[in-house]
Amino acid sequence: MKGSTELARHQLSEPVFWLAFPAVVGRLAIRICVGIGSIVLFAIDALGHVVRPPFHLRELWQAILNIGFYSLPIVGLTALFAGAALALQIQAGSARLSSETAVPVIVAIGMVRELGPVLCGLIVAGRVASSIGAEIATMKVTDQIDALRTLSTHPTKFLVVPRIIAATVVMPVLAGVGDIIGILGGFLVSTGRLGYNPDLYVDFTVRFLETSDVVSGLVKAAVFGFIISVIGCYFGANSGQGAKGVGRATTNSVAAASVLIIAANYAMTELFFRS
């Protein structure tokens, strides 16, 4: 009797397992779609507030300082070392093809098209998306968002819009500064350690770098800024209660912003450079 029950359970459990797997995948896919849909609706709602008064200029200026100015040192340092390492790697590769003269050009193009905006995006995502997510989530759990409403102030206008405008505007500036410092890093290593002629290095960099290279990198940076601010604000505004909710909002902001930056970078690279 006992054996027949176990047999029946075995016969039942096998198809249940094979049904459970697609169910889990399906649930995950639905959760991802709902999440993306919520973020898109959140962004559309925020964009609707961008063009409608009142405008909180003081908060916008504060956001520009927080997101742009205070990110400059870390972005600059990262770009400097990234540019230097890039020069070393390209020199090692181009030496195998006896085309060492390509180093200045590839360092410059690599920095302005890819490394500058992407590194800048990832660093600002780590620094700013987390802080935006944590700040708004903390405001939510301590009733500050409700307090804003009782003071006749729309939280999206006051908290989200200034951060989105600030991040979208200052990211190209940050990426531009990062590009220059990165190229400088490559220049210092190439002329100081690899024996390149400084005048020739600068000449090659300027002559072969095209406007479209720079513009595409800056456009990417602006899109990354938009992504970082929207994601930070979204996870902050939709956080759970208590310290756990704030912690989760912070982690999710950084993780989601980083993944979306890499994905958006690929999509924009396809768009800009496929031809």
């Binding site: 009142p54 504060q62 500050q144 409700d146 307090a147 009782t150």
Partner: peptide, 27 residues
């Protein structure tokens, strides 16, 4: 309306003056 929240709900990033005058300088 005016509302006193359980924990005060003062805005952390603003001074006491900016909190108290929040609605006075806006709207």
């Amino acid at each position: 309306i005016g509302m006193l929240f359980q924990g005060g709900a003062l805005f952390d990033s603003m001074t006491v003056f900016q909190n108290v005058a929040f609605q006075l300088v806006r709207g």
